[in-house]
């Protein structure tokens, strides 16, 4: 197991290297001279040149990339071109907000999705099953900004129960998490259901029943653990979508997180902040998937990942 984790960590290196190249080129190939933008519309050419010089924008592209890479390796992303504050000071508070949003939403979607999926599978074709699957289909097909707006309309404006914007207090957390987690819950519910239905017909479930076990034990001990194996993979993939969805959700609820930061700074051509932000997200995504793989291995002893 330990070996496996170490190996996976090593395998991350090329992936992350690829991410740095991608981020770097996207920013540098996008139109608009950052020096111009930083200096302002009407700044004289000399100021622009000075800024270019200071930021190293005149160096050949490979040199700029090498410098960027050095920053990454030393975990020192320098200062923001926009505010001159250290990138980490700018990034961390925002990162935590988004991270919290994503984690709460993930927990929410796993919890709700699993319960709904299990009920659906165990009572296949019952009223409960049909209703759950209808709701799930609804949750899948609804864009999350729309869901967010609808929730806001009802619970904040009409009923006045929940604050429409912001992040931090429990009341503020409910709607964004619901908005962001619904799609995942729907996907997980459907996945759990089909996986459970598949597992329930396996021979070893019949063996478990033939031992004289209670139906509850058969379902929760023998079926669920096997059924979770494919579900875990889905959770990992969902997390990627969640990070993207977070940006939209943040703008709907005016949450001051990474989404807003990245959008703002792309417009301002604040390369250090954008690059660091994207890189951090990529790292998180990659690590979540590592965790997924590890739990996959833990659940499924048949898979010999070594």
């Amino acid at each position: 197991m330990f070996q496996f984790i170490v190996r996976r960590l090593f395998q991350l290196i090329p992936v992350l290297l690829g991410v740095t190249i991608l981020v770097f080129s996207l920013m540098h190939l996008s139109p608009g001279n950052p020096a111009h933008i930083i200096a302002g519309e009407s700044a004289p050419e000399s100021t622009v040149q000075q800024i270019e010089e200071r930021l190293g924008l005149n160096d050949p592209i490979p040199v700029q990339y090498a410098n960027f890479l050095k920053d990454v390796v030393t975990l020192d992303f320098g200062n923001s071109w926009r505010t001159s504050l250290p990138v980490s000071t700018e990034l961390w508070p925002k990162f935590w907000v988004t991270f919290e949003l994503a984690i709460y939403s993930t927990i929410f979607s796993i919890f709700l999705g699993l319960i709904a999926g299990i009920i659906s599978a165990v009572r296949q074709y019952s009223v409960a099953d049909v209703s759950i699957m209808l709701v799930a289909l609804f949750g899948l097909s609804m864009p999350n900004f729309w869901l967010g707006l609808m929730l806001m309309q009802w619970f904040s404006i009409n009923l006045g129960w929940l604050p429409p914007t912001g992040w931090g207090t429990p009341e503020q957390i409910i709607m964004p998490v619901f908005t962001l987690g619904t799609m995942g819950a729907a996907v997980i519910a459907r996945m759990t259901r089909s996986s459970m239905l598949d597992v329930i017909t396996q021979d070893y479930i019949r063996t478990a029943r033939a031992k004289g076990l209670k139906e509850k034990v058969v379902i929760y001990r023998h079926a669920l653990k096997n059924a979770l194996i494919p579900v875990v993979t889905v959770v990992g993939l969902q997390f990627g979508g969640l990070l993207a969805g977070a940006v939209l959700t943040e703008s709907v609820f005016a949450i001051n997180g990474m989404g807003k930061l990245v959008v703002d700074r792309i417009l301002a051509r604040d390369f250090p902040v954008v690059q660091a932000a994207v890189l951090v997200m990529a790292v998180v995504f990659v690590f979540v998937n590592l965790i997924v793989d590890v739990s996959y291995k833990f659940l499924n002893k048949r898979i010999d990942l070594d």
Binding site: Q202, Y204, A208, N226, L299, N300, R302
Partner: peptide
């Protein structure tokens, strides 16, 4: 009949 699938793999 199926010893291969009659035991729980996990």
């Amino acid at each position: 009949q199926e010893p291969m699938t009659s035991l729980n793999p996990v």
